[in-house]
Design a protein around this nucleic acid. Structure first.
Lengths: 172, 172
DNA sequence: ACCACATCTGCGAAATCCGCAAGTCTCGGA
DNA sequence: TCCGAGACTTGCGGATTTCGCAGATGTGGT
């Protein structure tokens, strides 16, 4: 009933914040374990987490704070869009002529756009749209996205049924 | 310094849990406001939330517990996959012959599959894959997904750059 | 060797969480 | 109309958690 992740801390396990070349902070095993705990329950007390990962309450608190400050993770409530009144969703594949980045930027600025990713393949950009109804969705796709200068074509995939949505990265 | 969302509670605002025909619980304005608070900070104290939405600490506590029990929302840590060691992601569009639902089910069972949605359009299913490297990604797509009986064809969109990822449903 | 820096621990004080009870109000059914 | 169910409020202690700080410990660079 005392499953410690790490019994002793060796050198390479405690570099909780070293920058790798691309600027993203490098995470050690302990921080990973902390994140894992908070992925199960975002409100789990620091002491309980400490017990699980083999750290003091204060140490866990400091690391969590740093992870939040660094933007490595955030602790938030996530919901099923349907239950909060958004009944139409779609993934939109977009092809761009010219600067892809600027189009992506414009999409990011739209509040109905939940998700924007630049891709390799037959689309340059994939964007997820979350709307209240068909009219709203139609408006966003036809009037706002297609109106952006540089958007060559779009293809829409209206969601029929959401089957899975996980937030368990790093928990495998 | 006392910004209450609701000054007085009218009838339709306090049906915090009524079932609509499709079985999903209906949310009132107050629960929406609570979720909104927790989307900004999943660890915000109940008293602070109560102050913001115009409810007592105890009432907020009861509502949050119910929302969690009902599965309407969950409070979790979310991370940027890249910083936790998953360097290859892709969206895969899938075409199916026969029962779409059962294929979706099979995808859901895979731990590398983060997201599964059934769609209308030129794909029957969209699935998001999160992997550690190219080999892993290739393995999942070619050996596991394409091997499913009923999968007619797939098309992959490898992620080049994630531009936006929000969890702010209902916060508009 | 020594310093600078980051991290961890320990420990009080303050704040929060949690369960509980009693009273109010509204809605809807008998 | 009367009554019960459900939701909210207020109030209350006790257990728990959070928070800030001071003092160790450890590591890397000079």
């Amino acid at each position: 009933m005392h499953s410690e992740v790490v019994a002793s801390r060796s050198a390479d396990q405690r570099d909780s914040s070293r920058e790798s070349r691309n600027g993203t902070p490098q995470l050690d095993a302990v921080s990973l374990a902390i994140i894992q705990q908070l992925q199960e329950d975002g409100r789990r007390p620091y002491a309980a987490i400490g017990k699980a990962v083999g750290l003091s309450e204060a140490a866990v608190r400091q690391r969590v704070q740093k992870l939040l400050d660094q933007g490595v993770m955030q602790i938030v409530a996530v919901t099923d869009p349907l239950t909060v009144g958004f009944r139409r969703q779609a993934m939109v594949g977009i092809n761009v002529e010219g600067d892809v980045e600027s189009i992506a930027e414009a999409l990011t600025a739209m509040s109905e756009v939940e998700y924007v990713v630049m891709t390799a393949g037959s689309f340059d950009i994939l964007a997820e749209i979350v709307c209240e109804d068909d009219d709203h969705l139609l408006d966003v796709i036809n009037k706002r996205i297609r109106a952006l200068p540089g958007v060559r074509s779009t293809e829409s995939f209206v969601y029929l049924k959401l089957k899975k949505q996980t937030y368990m990265w790093g928990t495998r």
